[in-house]
Amino acid sequence: MAAKTLTIDGKEVSAAEGATILEAASDAGITLPTLCHLEGVYDVGACRMCLVEIAGTPKLLPACTTQVSEGMNVTTTSERLQQYRKMILELLFAERNHVCAVCVANGHCELQTLAYRQGMDHVRYDYCFPKWDVDITHPLYGMDHNRCILCTRCVRVCWHIEGAGTKNVAGRGAKAQIITDLFQPWGESDTCTNCGKCVMSCPTGALFYRGATVGEMERDRSKLEFIVTAREKKQWIP
């Protein structure tokens, strides 16, 4: 594969053709804030946290779904990008009900961590306070729609790592939600294999192991990494 040469934050880097800006940046030791990106499953560009500036393009583009090209000049940190990232986080908090103090993921939540890293000390928009349910029909896991940011990580691991295809997205806009099968209670799903990969993948407190209480929901991603390594290296390396 041909290599492409580009500039990221003033640094000359080279990346394989077809690589994303996110991959090229990470190889060059530049970390970008991400939420919907999960190592091992394909990217969808759902959260827009990884937006970057590309010289000559007026639009901001997500680093996780934009491929590198020859001579590209990328900026990953600027006042404008900071503002947008903070705004996106505030909108995520305003859209559903995030009460960190009583959340299973408190202290282990990627949304919460990003919020303080990006300097979000309050939310400027009015909270929507929508009414959402918690599905605890599954014997092992629960789904709290109040905490879901619709990153679709759970859907992607369910379809493309487990191959079960249980998790899906239904509805549009503010009414969009994660469903199981054809909108059944999770506990009644015929396709769910009880593997728990969706729970491992979730960045927030939306998917949890039943029995976990406030702040207890620590995720073990090693199982996902194990499978991803096996797929990429064709070897089972624990």
Partner: peptide
């Protein structure tokens, strides 16, 4: 100074807002 999550976000006290 908004002091603590209830002052800053509504927090637990605002959960009742979800009931419409």
């Amino acid at each position: 100074v908004a002091f603590g999550d209830c002052a800053v976000t509504g927090n637990v006290t605002a959960i009742r807002n979800q009931l419409g």
